Amino acid sequence: MFTQMTFKALEHRGWSERARIYDHYSGRFCRFGIAALIDAARISRGQSTLDVCCGTGEASLAAAARGAIVTGIDFSEEMIAEAKAKGGNVDFQVGDAEALIFDDAAFHRVINNFGTLDLADPDKAIAEAARVLKPGGRYAYTVWRGPDVSPLFRILPEVVSAHGTLDVDLPPAPPLFRFADREEAMGALSAAGFTDITFAGIPATLDFPLAELSDFFHHAFVRSTMVLERQEPAARARIEEALGESFQPFTENGIVHLPLPALVVSATRA
């Protein structure tokens, strides 16, 4: 049963299973945040930079292309293997965002591209980012905005609730959109010793064939896939049919053009 595993263990298993297909699914929309992330962190040539939750390494490689000296860490050995296979001048390592192995004040910059959503203890990870940053160093993360503005994150729970149940045997998880909330983000960052906190929107649109909707949801996400897999077969069939209907207003010529707004949040280590 899922409840016998921790949230962290389930996230680790889910992303490890997706490592080889990550770039085709999740990576297609996580790339939206990379340029904004690197700009917000003010990454430039010669700066030591840590990419936390680096996945298959796209943000790490982009930072290295700016001339930074980059280390990328991820808790999944499979993700790190995929990142290393891309080559590039990045030191990729298996590592835990909530217990970094690096010395205090080791980096000029720390970045996290949509990885905060997958952490069991994001406050601890933010505190660790502050610890390994040099005074005056810059931290930046990207995060999806919530159901108040994002059709994807509004439609999915509504459809599941209407045709199945959200009450499945999953372990407790941190609030998905907590760090897209300005008050929550400022509180957590300030508590970790950050100042000069800034927020900027990232407009993005996710395009995919409507016919591949079920395949996309199964492979692109971990949390939602766990919920869908715990539905009764008949309920899951109804959910998938209703999702297709719900995405029709965003579909043209068989292609879904789904707004997927995000935020980049950045701050300076005091």
Rank of each mutant, 00 (worst) to 15 (best):
E183F: 12
V264S: 07
F32G: 08
G187M: 02
R13Q: 15
A192I: 10
L133T: 04
G137L: 00
A242Q: 09
D169Y: 11
A64N: 04
A41W: 10
F107R: 06
V159K: 04
E229R: 08
H257R: 11
A234F: 05
A99F: 06
S16Q: 08
E252N: 14
R182N: 08
M226F: 14
L243M: 08
D215G: 14
E58H: 13
P203N: 09
A120F: 03
C53M: 15
F32D: 10
N113T: 04
V265Q: 06
N112Y: 00
A127W: 01
L258I: 10
F208R: 02
P174I: 05
A36M: 08
R66I: 03
E78G: 04
A191W: 09
A9Q: 13
A125G: 13
G187D: 13
V160F: 07
T116M: 13
N113W: 06
R18A: 15
A242Y: 00
A130G: 01
A85I: 01
F179K: 01
V90Y: 05
I111L: 13
P203R: 11
V90I: 05
P203V: 05
I21W: 03
G14Y: 11
W15E: 10
V52Q: 13
D167F: 07
A99E: 10
L133R: 03
T116L: 14
F114C: 08
V264Y: 10
N112T: 11
Q93S: 03
P147A: 01
I43Q: 00
G72S: 03
H108I: 00
L119I: 02
D103S: 15
I126C: 12
F194H: 06
L243D: 01
S150P: 05
G27T: 08
M79H: 03
A204T: 05
V143C: 11
I21Q: 13
D74K: 04
G244C: 07
G244I: 02
I73N: 02
L258D: 14
F153G: 05
T268K: 07
G136Y: 04
L61P: 05
T225V: 10
T225K: 14
A267V: 00
F250C: 09
F217E: 14
P135E: 00
A85L: 13
Q93I: 03
Q93W: 06
M79Y: 07
A211I: 08
I21F: 12
G87Q: 07
A83K: 10
A191F: 07
E252F: 07
F92E: 09
E78V: 02
R18Y: 02
R109E: 01
D181L: 07
S266D: 02
R182F: 00
I101C: 11
I43G: 10
I126Y: 02
V160A: 00
N113K: 12
P172I: 01
G136R: 09
S266A: 08
A59M: 10
D148I: 02
E17S: 13
A65T: 06
R154K: 12
S16A: 09
R18I: 00
E128N: 12
V159D: 02
S48N: 15
G27V: 00
S60N: 02
H219E: 13
G27S: 01
V149R: 00
